[in-house]
Design a protein around this nucleic acid. Structure first.
Length: 195
DNA sequence: ATCGAGATTACA
DNA sequence: GTAATCTCGATC
């Protein structure tokens, strides 16, 4: 199977976030153990003007990779204990990326480990800061095409944890597979009609 | 050199 | 509801 090429990632983050649903994230560790998850939840961070995007801080040591060529990993450490994994999108000069928020276990994962949530999936797959800036076409780290996810299964809503971003917090840039059991959060359930 | 905040998670 | 815990980036 051929890894997704740089041209796949060199499109607007919202497009990539949609197309990533259903694809396979493949990580091989130093011992040669392969771990694979199917992506079921993503969030698009579309550029410097997007106040929820780390690139809104401008070009810094941390955000530099987001402004570089598409098809590389952007991994950051947060809250003193978790890593979050993103893929860089768009043309060089555009600080955009897609956060992977949840995968379904496919290979190499113990039955009890959870892969829903950006921190949990990094822990489960062994993704760390050492993967930051890596190209996504290596044996150690790449994505593979999966079964296409029909539009009828795609749901959208506001991104998680970005309330500080004003109007940008409301935009429906979070995408997930509606019938997946491995999505990190669901919209507040609608109140049932009174019996 | 120091300080505040954070694209989260686990547990009371 | 809140503690845990480290990196980055801004400020002094």
């Amino acid at each position: 199977m051929t890894p997704l090429p740089p041209s796949f990632y060199a499109r607007p983050a919202l497009v990539v976030a949609r197309e990533l649903l259903g694809t396979l994230l493949v990580v091989r560790d130093a011992q040669g153990v392969r771990r694979v998850g199917r992506i079921v939840e993503t969030e698009a961070y579309i550029g410097e003007h997007d106040l929820a995007c780390h690139a809104a801080k401008g070009l810094t040591a941390r955000t530099e990779v987001m402004f570089g060529p598409a098809g590389r990993a952007y991994v950051y450490f947060i809250y003193g204990m978790h890593c979050c994994f993103n893929v860089v999108t768009d043309e060089p000069g555009v600080g955009a990326a897609v956060l992977i928020r949840a995968v379904e276990p496919v290979e190499g994962l113990e039955a009890e480990v959870r892969t829903d949530g950006p921190g949990r999936l990094c822990k489960a797959l062994g993704l760390t800061l050492t993967h930051n800036r890596m190209e996504l076409e290596t044996d150690a780290l790449h994505l593979l095409p999966g079964e296409a996810v029909a539009e009828s299964r795609v749901e959208r809503g506001p991104r998680i944890g970005v309330d500080y971003a004003g109007e940008w917090a409301q935009k429906p840039f979070r995408l997930w597979v509606g019938d997946s059991q491995h999505v990190s959060r669901r919209p507040a359930p609608r109140a049932r009609k009174r019996p």
